[in-house]
């Protein structure tokens, strides 16, 4: 943490019997940053996040989250990291308030203070009017926003968002991206964001990393990556163009 890196990995590796999902990954995310974590399906992004949360043991290398070891200090890490899994699941027979209350209980939050925090989280993600509806009846976009509310409930220092825009309509995706940007700016939450909505990612990311077949092939600000791939020709390149270039070469 002394060097201002909220996330740091050193040669992080995950081998499965048949394939290597993450191969010698070393990258870092600075405090207050939104880091766009890009790569095709199966590149190893989710596996990396799981290792950062101590849910999956690395086959090699190590990682630090806020200076903590995710394996040996799993509980401390989970206190400060808000994680929105890919395809987050809910208990269909609970409503939004009950779902959030369970998360608050698991976090050992003070029972009196929770009601207020729950309303605040629901307000932030714009679910106040639907808070008494059973989650089973929620649309994909509403579920994703409820997932964000669960993440916010514990006042995280860092958020790991694994493809939060997956399956959302363009408007829903844009609104979620705006929310992430606001949270980053107003609450100084560091964000590790994996997404395929490159235009949206470009709007808010301070830096991006492109992962292909378990390896990080590029890491840096979008301008720096454009310069590396296309040279200085005065033209503005979109993240999409840069990504495709790396993808074709990787």
């Amino acid at each position: 943490m002394e060097n201002g890196n909220v996330i740091e990995t050193f040669d992080l590796t995950k081998r499965y019997p048949r394939q290597t999902a993450v191969n010698g990954l070393s990258f870092s995310v600075k405090e207050g940053e939104i880091f766009g974590f890009l790569g095709p399906n199966g590149a190893g992004k989710s596996t990396t996040l799981l290792m950062l949360l101590g849910l999956s043991e690395p086959s090699g290398g190590s990682a630090l989250v806020c200076g903590l070891d995710p394996i040996r200090q799993a509980r401390e890490v989970k206190k400060i990291v808000g994680y929105l899994p890919e395809n987050v699941g809910f208990y269909g027979d609970l409503d939004a308030v009950e779902s959030l209350r369970y998360i608050a209980d698991l976090n050992g939050m003070d029972r009196d203070a929770t009601s207020e925090k729950i309303s605040e989280a629901l307000e932030t993600v714009g679910l106040t009017n639907e808070k008494r509806k059973k989650v089973g009846a929620y649309s994909r976009g509403m579920k994703q926003r409820l997932g964000m509310a669960e993440v916010l409930l514990k006042d995280p220092k860092v958020m790991f968002l694994d493809e939060p825009t997956l399956g959302l309509d363009p408007d829903g995706a844009a609104r979620l991206i705006d929310l992430i940007k606001t949270l980053n700016r107003e609450r100084n939450i560091t964000v590790l964001l994996s997404s395929h909505h490159l235009t949206q990612v470009q709007k808010i990311s301070h830096r991006v990393g492109i992962m292909i077949k378990g390896e990080m092939v590029a890491e840096g600000s979008i301008d720096a990556l454009a310069q590396e791939k296309f040279g200085v020709d005065g033209k503005e390149y979109s993240l999409e163009e840069i990504y495709m270039k790396y993808f074709q070469e990787g």
Binding site: K78, V81, P85, G89, K154
Partner: peptide, 17 residues
């Protein structure tokens, strides 16, 4: 069932053993 519904990972990323 929690695994199938994707709630297990959510619980296990809360600060509990």
């Amino acid at each position: 069932r929690e695994r199938a519904e994707g709630t297990l990972i959510k619980i296990l990323t809360q600060p509990i053993f």
